[in-house]
Write a protein that binds this DNA or RNA. Structure first.
Length: 604
DNA sequence: GCAAGGTC
């Protein structure tokens, strides 16, 4: 009997369905000579320090460098502390029984580093010796699954991928556990001051932005505005220069003449392509902006929709789909033809050529972008409905036509030069789906500008001196933080470039929401309205570690580079030795530095 | 009491 092990039940069931296996058992499905079972993500993890004999939190133990790492069952928190996760235990027992009976194992965990680790940890923990082959697919359509089974790879092809995964896991343990204990112990506060490769750079970003914002000294500057009149239609134009002093601006204001000469009129159409389909992060950002949901809330609502089979797999980092999934999109759109809010747009997309911006098989990683499944929901709670509509609406946007705008710029001479700019949407295209206002800066803009000709003289009916102030970068909120994490704090607005940066981002789509919650739980940050603001504890920790490598996003980038080299065959022990050396150094540093930490009893 | 990774 061959046993197929998937990363999660949904995939196990999907594969079983393709094979036509229908006999449902507890924790697996049988049929056609195969058994289909699954994990629930990581069932096993690196064992806690006490399992290597490092009891309590003790400076004597530091740095903790276990000669050989052990695996232990996933834990859950209860009132009695951490205990084995009963669900994980039960499923692992089922997998053990099936592996014992198996002639061959087919590894169908997600096609990526962590998917490989999920399987190998199980395999080695159970001391299994059965031969295994690897299924490597990036979408779960029938065709992709069948094709994948015709092209099963030898299990050993992925040994180096496992090595890189195992290194990632061990390195995070070594640095995180040791740094956390070192700082907590030396601070003498008896509280947990956690540090880690992902959480500490994230905390640093929040603190740095907060301090930058708080210490920002606004500068006042002045502009002059005029209001020309074109056949009764007034519009506003602003001086093309800004002035440091009121006097300079006042002089310009006084030179405004009774009429203004139109020097140039520049009207050009601009195509605005539809947004890409949602991945988890972009959906969390939108949910935060539109509804004020936290990253954690958005994820759990989405998980609920996924378990109700209403949307595809949510923890994806890809905003693209492959051609196989695209082939199903017209049918999917047609399901919304009679939909109350989306019906009109769905009908408009029927039978027309769809925009293929979100179609690119090469950019589909472990999972494709989030789509509705085509299963129609009824009686969703308002929150679930809101998230569902964001997924369904985004599908209608993503395959829609470009939005065509006309951007007009009028330059007028009246003493000095003045500029009026306006944007008019000529063809709404994808923007018709939600009928949203353009988020781009619109404060200076006129919604519509009258038709004027170059060389025309227009009466100036009003003029004014404007006093303005420069503004600091805003504090992070969950949406802007999630966006910043994807590119490790570097600000990149170009959507395509951002996609390319994802491999060196901080954390993964699946873990970011939990990481923000960790920072809140540690009392490092608090939510103030929508903003994420550091506490005095957070700032004190930041102050101690800000110049350490562990607080730099680049640490992840450096590790990723090394891990990728390991995946292509480079030495494992060399990297491990470096990590151990770094662990010793940072532990020693923090045992000293932590003494300087000052955390008042009364926290903000 | 602690990391980051995955998932129900």
């Amino acid at each position: 009997m061959k046993v197929i092990l998937a990363e999660k039940p949904s995939v196990g069931r999907e594969i079983a369905k393709v094979f036509g296996a229908t006999t449902k058992r507890e924790g697996y499905i049988e049929g056609k000579g195969y058994t289909f079972t699954w994990a629930f993500g990581h069932l096993l993890q690196l064992a806690a320090p006490q399992e290597y004999g490092y009891y309590g939190w003790n400076v004597q133990n530091l740095p903790m460098l276990p000669p050989k790492f052990k695996l232990s069952l996933r834990k859950v928190k209860t009132k009695d502390g951490l205990v084995d996760d009963p669900g994980a235990k039960k499923q692992l027992d089922i997998i053990k029984t099936l592996f014992d009976e198996a002639t061959e194992i087919i590894v169908a965990t997600d096609a990526g580093r962590e998917g490989e680790l999920i399987f190998r940890y199980i395999y080695y923990y159970l001391k299994c010796k059965k031969p295994f082959k690897r299924l490597w697919i990036s979408s779960q359509t029938d065709a992709a699954i069948k094709d994948g089974f015709r092209n099963l790879k030898p299990g050993t092809d992925y040994d180096t991928l496992f090595n890189s995964a195992h290194c990632r896991s061990q390195s995070d343990w070594l640095v995180g556990m040791n740094a956390t204990q070192a700082l907590s112990l030396s601070s003498g506060t008896r509280s947990v001051l956690s540090l880690g490769r992902v959480q500490t750079p994230t905390l640093a970003m929040i603190c740095a932005r907060y301090l930058e914002n708080k210490n920002f000294v606004p500068e006042t500057f002045y502009q002059v505005a005029i209001q020309p009149d074109k056949d009764g239609q007034l519009f506003r134009a602003i001086s093309d220069k800004s002035f440091k002093t009121r006097e300079e601006a006042q002089a310009v204001l006084e030179k405004v003449e009774p009429t203004g000469l139109v020097l140039s009129v520049d009207a050009k159409p601009r195509k605005e392509p539809p947004p890409l389909l949602h991945d988890l992060s972009s959906l969390q950002q939108e949910a935060n902006k539109r509804k004020g949901f936290t990253a954690d809330q958005a994820l759990s609502l989405l998980q609920n929709l996924y378990e109700s089979k209403l949307v595809t797999y949510p923890r994806t980092g890809s905003r693209y789909i492959g051609d196989d999934v695209f082939a199903e999109v017209p049918n999917l759109i047609a399901k919304f033809n009679n939909h109350e809010t989306f019906g009109k747009q769905a009908n408009l997309l029927t039978g027309v050529k769809l925009n293929k911006r979100s179609v690119n098989a090469k950019k589909v990683t472990d999972h494709h972008a989030i789509l509705p499944t085509g299963e129609m929901p009824n009686h969703l709670t308002p929150d679930l409905q809101a998230i569902y509509d964001m997924v369904a609406g985004r599908m209608l946007e993503a395959f829609n036509q470009d939005c065509i705008k006309e951007i007009t710029k009028i330059v007028i001479q009246s003493g000095a030069k003045y500029v009026a700019s306006g944007t008019v949407i000529k063809t709404a295209g994808w923007r018709a789906v939600f009928n949203d206002k353009d988020e781009e800066k619109k404060d200076e803009e006129n919604p519509t500008l009258p038709k004027v000709q170059q060389g025309e003289n227009l009466p100036i009916v009003n003029k004014a001196l404007l006093e303005k102030q420069t503004k600091p970068k805003p504090l992070y909120n969950e949406a802007s933080l999630l966006k910043a994490l994807e590119t490790a704090g570097k600000e990149i607005d170009d959507e395509e470039l951002r996609q390319a940066m994802k491999d060196s981002g901080l954390g993964t789509p699946a873990t970011r929401a939990a990481m923000i919650e960790t920072l809140l739980k540690r009392n490092y940050i608090v939510r103030e309205k929508k903003n994420l603001v550091p506490t005095v504890t957070g700032l004190a920790v930041y102050d101690v570690v800000k110049n350490q490598q562990i607080a730099q996003a680049e640490l992840t980038g450096n590790w990723e580079k090394r891990l990728e080299e390991i995946r292509s065959g480079a030495s494992v022990s060399e990297f491990q030795d470096e990590i151990k050396a770094y662990t010793s150094t940072i532990t020693k540093d923090l045992l000293q530095a932590g003494k300087a930490i000052v955390i008042p009893k009364l926290n903000r």
